[in-house]
Amino acid sequence: MYGLVHRALQCFAQDIYGDEIWDKVVVEVGHQLHEYEAMLTYPDHHLDDVLVALSDQLEKTPTQVSEDVGTYLVTHTRMEPVRRLLRFGGATFEEFVLSLDDLHDRLKLALPDLDLPRLEVETHSSSAISVSVDFDRQGFGAVLLGILRAMADDYGALVVLELGRGGLGDKEVERVTAELFEAQFATGRGFGLVAEESMT
């Protein structure tokens, strides 16, 4: 898998908890890899190893840590490009969630080798939407939960989110359900189609 994913986890540990925690994780994992490169590929099991070691250090469950990573991806200044790419999905939180279907294919356009989950969006009522995570690995549901929580804040929407499981075809997959109460509950953060700094 692309180091982009490994690196996100590394940056999360360093930015939120500091270099010492990351150093301890590196020692505990024992892969002799202090720095993951976004554009190189690493074995998938590194991801699990690092996540487990980091959870140990933080005394949290891997699911809690994954959710925090999702939130970090949207809210931390270092990850601003991620938030921007997600905001391309739509002008409102609802539009954004409905656009998650396309996210996989959009990312494939930019990084054909990036292997990320395919998301299936389904609407249940005018305000209830569910997003199923179609992937051969478990654990991305919690990251998605964190991302959706942070994106709801980003749009200023009032939403109740829940992580569970559900059927998708003949598979049982992770599924996040979103109940939208108010689209403009608070003032969201701004978004321009073109990033400010690129205008030089």
Partner: peptide, 14 residues
């Protein structure tokens, strides 16, 4: 166009 802007941005990050 919007997809193109998305692509421009994603490609620049990569």
């Amino acid at each position: 166009t919007v997809d193109m802007l998305y692509l421009i941005e994603a490609k620049s990050i990569a």
